[in-house]
Simulated assay, not measured.
Amino acid sequence: MRGLGVRGAAGLLAVLLAVSLAGCSDSGGESGDGPAIGLLLPSRAVPRWENSDKPLIEKRVKELCSDCTIVYANAENDAASQRQQMNSMITRGVSALILDVVDPKALRSSVRAAQREGIPVVAYDRLAEGPIAGFVSFDGAQVGRLQGQALLKGMGARADGGGVVMVNGDPSSPNAAWYEGGARAALRDEVRILKSYNTVGWRSENAHDHMSAAISTLGPGRIDGVLAANDSIAAGVISALKSARVSPLPPVTGQDADLDAVQRIVKGEQYMTVYKPFRLEAEAASAMAVALARDNDIDALVTTEVDSPTTEDVPAILLDPTAVTRETIGRTLVRDGVFTLDQICTPKFRSACDRAGLTR
């Protein structure tokens, strides 16, 4: 599997626009009379789903197809609920589905049911199982590699044989193993993995419990760095470290560029996060879903193919993520309009932003 770099991303946007506009040329222009596209997101525990992905997808679908409607559901991290939501959309007769799957195995039968009804399923962010029509995500192995490489840099001299705790994602998510594999590849032969945990639901409170257990078992002096799979997990890890009065804090990784994580980075509590330009992901998935809903070909959209445990050669778009540290917030997140300096540098964080050079 290969990702799509910055130059490739620019080219992709042009293709998305051209193909999607062509796909809408036969819409008839009557708002509400066009296809219905189902959007199924996994949870509210990770802020990006409701704050970024949902509005971006809704906006882009309407831009590409003014008479399309979005049918939305959030599974609240419950596979049974998501299966029920998806089956309801199939019964309703949506024209295409964008599925960010909670548990690929649990939803496999629903993906097959959609295929039987002629409803194409676009797997979004996480690779679903069953006969999916396409997959849009970021290169998960690269996400893990960026985290591992940054952690080694943050550890400095302690990276030579130092001790690391890994607080990974939810094992029901295929991305969790993808991220962990990339991270382990970067850390291999450099550090000692002292403890490794899986975090059900990607929840901060579960990560807090894992980190508290690691501190209790190992002692804070042996923990030179923490590989936290995403920003919600990083929040729990840092909370546990602070509760145990660990000082200075070891470098802690993250992912998703949540605003509170960016502020922790500015403050020096979290070392890095991984920025995944959600707009590109949302636009790619929207274009794919609109094209499929109108029975159009998606060959011009895809950049690679992937294999799931059940399906080979799934047409896919894999985008490249970017590591963000305190030194690069301005030229990544602020430059791309993800956050303004005013959003990051609230009065509470003003002095930290001054020290980081963000407000000069």
Rank of each mutant, 00 (worst) to 15 (best):
G181L: 07
G181K: 12
A185V: 14
A186Q: 05
L187P: 02
L187Q: 06
L187I: 09
L187V: 09
R188T: 11
R188D: 08
R188W: 05
D189Q: 12
V191E: 04
V191W: 05
L194R: 14
L194E: 14
K195L: 13
K195Y: 12
K195A: 13
S196H: 11
Y197M: 10
T199H: 07
A207P: 00
A207W: 03
A207I: 07
A207Y: 02
H208L: 12
H210G: 10
M211Y: 04
M211N: 08
A213V: 11
A213D: 15
A213L: 13
A213F: 09
A213I: 10
A213P: 01
A214E: 08
T217P: 09
L218M: 09
G219H: 03
P220G: 00
P220W: 00
G221K: 14
G221R: 14
R222A: 11
I223P: 01
G225L: 01
G225I: 01
V226H: 03
L227I: 01
A229Y: 00
N230E: 08
N230G: 00
S232E: 14
S232T: 15
I233S: 05
I233V: 15
V237T: 11
A240N: 02
L241V: 14
A244C: 02
R245V: 02
V246E: 07
P250A: 12
P251A: 12
V252M: 11
T253G: 08
T253A: 08
G254A: 04
Q255F: 06
Q255E: 10
Q255K: 04
D256R: 02
